[in-house]
Design a protein around this nucleic acid. Structure first.
Lengths: 190, 190
DNA sequence: GTCTATATTTTGATAGAC
DNA sequence: GTCTATCAAAATATAGAC
């Protein structure tokens, strides 16, 4: 891994501050201070505060999109696909805890890219729902309200960023297994 | 129900704006404009922006505290207590969707009341965890990692405010039942 | 690439007329 | 109880020296 550039450092530290206080409450002076430079110097590396948010959120959203596409394209059972979705969330959340917080909490502060983000999120949820409905049709999944099932699983997965840092004891595999047991095995016919 | 006072209106509309953009991104001018008065007029009814946030969050946090206390004091089984916790979240979220959003997303912007809020939240989670651990001891609940169980259930319940508005078709009882099925029956021994 | 200095806007909040 | 006028501080961002 190459040496971190100043721009990468700015984005990394910004994501950390955004996680703690939210995009709107973090000032460019806060960010500069955390890096130990002056606020004006930030603008030699980034165009605007908004650009920082855009880079953080859109890159993760596209990771989710491509990850979901791979799962959809696979010819696995619905339950296997759901397990892969869980693993995808665990992996992406583990890779970028702070960015995930911004994705979850600050997407509404996107300006030019807001519609693009909303489209990606909507597509993702539609794919998720199709997996659940297919699983219900093939009787892999209990015939519960599919929206309640998706809501329950997806909100849990979207909150992983809050929880992973506290559970260093659990590695990603263990966490995926535990979530599988609670989220999936609970809803499958036995 | 008595006529809404101007102060109550300010708090109600503020919660709605906070839900959409977050506390920090909502200005007193935004709030005044939504009520169709001037920003300076707000201060005839409230002391500060911070006071509005405090009223919104602390009142709900205390509702959760007293609701949990009633559940703990009851001599029901662990599973029955968990079902009551779900009903508590559904009820409080339904009663105050926008306030619940502020509780979830803007608690870190509390100033004087931050420590008090954190204490209430910590106590709540400890009580929740005790219910789960008791249920595992009595074998009502599967012997999964209790923290994963609590995390999964609690994050789902805490996100209800996002979801209830979209599901007007489901009333509170139906929603509780569906959540019970997905969250509880999935983790019980059969 | 970082700095000082500064422009411009916006912010929470107050004073005082009505 | 609401308004206009205003303050003081803080915000994002730019210009230009080094």
């Amino acid at each position: 891994m190459a040496q971190e550039t100043r721009k990468q450092e700015i984005i990394r530290v910004a994501a950390e501050l955004f996680k703690n206080k939210g995009y709107s409450a973090v000032t460019m002076r806060d960010l500069a201070s955390a890096i130990d430079i002056k606020a004006a110097s930030l603008y030699n590396h980034i165009n605007s505060k908004q650009d920082i948010l855009k880079v953080i959120i859109i890159s993760i959203a596209e990771d989710f999109t491509s990850g979901m596409q791979s799962i959809i394209d696979s010819k696995k059972s619905s339950i296997s696909k759901l397990r892969d979705v869980i693993a995808l969330h665990v992996r992406l959340a583990s890779n970028n805890i702070n960015g995930m917080a911004a994705l979850n909490n600050d997407w509404m502060h996107l300006e030019d890219q807001l519609d693009f983000y909303l489209k990606l999120r909507s597509d993702y949820e539609n794919n998720f729902m199709e997996i659940i409905k297919s699983g219900i049709e093939t009787k892999e999944i209990k015939n519960c309200n599919p929206e309640v099932i998706m809501f329950s699983i997806l909100t849990t997965l979207r909150s992983l960023y809050l929880w992973i840092p506290k559970k260093e004891a659990l590695n990603a595999n263990e966490l995926s297994q535990n979530l599988n047991q609670v989220l999936i095995d609970g809803i499958t016919n036995k």
